[in-house]
């Protein structure tokens, strides 16, 4: 027994390409227009929130700007009864899964007419749309998503859970605990990590051991996939395949979408342009705007005319104006409302 084995595991990359024309040909116009419309609506919602901020409303804004493609094109693959576990970057997931502007804006400024009756604020949830709550603790939602997927598997339905998170949360222990359990139990959850290269103000090179978050899938027996998160067509196709795999009962996936936020981490961040990030870097990413990119593609492939796209833009602006006004006009919750729903059975009266 003198031959002792030393086995080394190294990362192997396997790149393939896909022709965009093929993806476009595989999609129906309705789906493509829905993705475009919801990206435009997401950007308008961000505009509306900025208007509310300028009016001095108390609001926590984590702008979606620049990252619209990943949540919207991902969710375009989902059915009404599929689940979404959202995260703190913006509101694309809320719009894509069916929440309306009014309930979102009203909630964000804590009005009684909001989706969570005003008490959740940015922690948006919608039972009706199966948006299962957005904890304020980064990464806490990852294991909750696995629990929902476990429940789906137990009930033997073909529903799936899509769980979004950011590169920042990929450093939480909960990610590793969640990937391990999801992979062990082969439950139908698709993890989407939007890597926007910063963890609040810090470049990921200063906080994170890997530049590709998808590497972290490998340690848990999963394949990691990396794609351009600003290309809605690519996101739709690649995530769609992972969702179908989960539906077939073949277990979880992790997909990393490379992207960039144009604005600060939150509305408190005033150093995002020329502070901790160079103006050149931000401007270069703005050239890769997911909405402009899709607009060009839709016209180039003859899917839509400029007039159709302009109409969508116009409708989104109107929807935003109405929602801003609705939110402002809505009442705050009553004082008594602040003390209810700590328990499912109020009669227990603790």
């Amino acid at each position: 027994m003198n031959n002792l084995t030393i086995k080394k595991i190294t990362k192997q990359e396997n790149c393939t390409t896909v022709d965009k024309a093929t993806i476009v040909a595989s999609m129906d116009k309705k789906t493509m227009m829905t993705i475009y419309r919801d990206m435009i609506r997401t950007r308008e919602l961000d505009n509306g929130i900025e208007e509310l901020l300028k009016r001095g409303e108390s609001i926590t804004q984590h702008s979606t700007r620049g990252q619209e493609a990943t949540p919207i094109a991902t969710i375009a693959n989902l059915r009404k009864n599929d689940y979404v576990m959202p995260y703190h970057r913006g509101w694309g997931w809320a719009i894509g899964k069916g929440m309306n502007f009014k309930e979102i804006m009203a909630e964000l400024i804590n009005k009684k007419t909001g989706s969570n009756r005003g008490r959740g604020g940015p922690q948006l949830a919608s039972w009706e749309n199966r948006i299962m709550g957005r904890p304020g603790i980064q990464g806490a939602h990852l294991s909750i998503a696995v629990g929902i997927a476990l429940s789906i598997k137990y009930r033997k339905t073909d529903e799936v859970v899509v769980c979004f998170f950011g590169n920042g949360s990929s450093n939480s222990g909960n990610l590793h605990e969640s990937l391990n359990m999801a992979s062990t139990w082969k439950v139908p959850v698709v993890f989407i990590v939007e890597n926007n290269l910063y963890e609040i103000y810090e470049p990921i090179t200063d906080t994170t051991s890997v530049s590709d978050i998808a590497d972290r899938a490998l340690g848990h027996g999963l394949e990691g996939t990396i794609i351009d998160g600003n290309d809605a067509f690519l996101v739709y196709k690649v995530v769609g395949e992972a969702i179908e795999k989960a539906r077939r009962g073949e277990g979880p996936s992790l997909i990393e979408t490379k992207t960039y936020r144009w604005m600060g981490h939150s509305s408190n961040d005033q150093r995002y342009y020329g502070g901790y990030r160079s103006k050149e870097e931000v401007d270069a990413w703005k050239e890769k705007c997911p909405i402009s990119l899709m607009e060009k593609d839709l016209i180039a492939f003859g899917v839509a005319t400029q007039a159709e796209l302009d109409e969508i833009q116009k409708a989104a602006v109107e929807e935003k104006q109405a929602a801003v006004q609705f939110a402002i006009d809505s009442p705050y919750p009553e004082y008594e409302d602040l003390l209810t729903d700590n328990y499912a059975d109020e009669k227990e009266g603790l």
Binding site: Y83, A145, N180, M181
Partner: peptide, 17 residues
């Protein structure tokens, strides 16, 4: 994975188990 499995239980409880 105490924190993780309590999150799992929370998600499962929310959706029927």
């Amino acid at each position: 994975s105490e924190n993780g499995f309590c999150g799992v239980a929370t998600g499962a409880a929310m959706t029927g188990l």
